[in-house]
Amino acid sequence: MTAGRPGTSGAAAAPKGGPPGGRGRRLIPAYLATGGRERPRGTAGFDRLTLLVATDQQPPELDFGPEHRRLWTLLRPGALTVVECAAHLGLPVSATVFLAADLVGGGHLLARSPVPKAEEIDRTLIERLLVGLRALP
């Protein structure tokens, strides 16, 4: 083989610097520190492509901080994914998930996951994708 790529069995692909999680403190930015409520609450199942939609229940100022209200306000006109909300608000994805989970818990947002699960990725779906890609202008 004349190719230059080293074998894939070695350390080349291993993440550097030890196991994830590690020791030490996790720094919590100020906007995540809320009145003593425990976190994370109900963030399981959220990811970058979770679709968020505002309900007409505005989050009361007493229960929610300004970051929660920024997220709800952003979503008033229509639906966006978590990652788009994070980008528009200038927040990390993880922070956006915390905010969204709180707002879903309070009935101020609805969250859906319109992402096919691994077992739903089948030939029919990919063929549909190919037809769509070939039809793009």
Partner: peptide
Amino acid sequence: QVRYLPATGQTLMK
């Protein structure tokens, strides 16, 4: 500036 998505009917893929 924000381009919203329809709330239903779409399949999202990464």
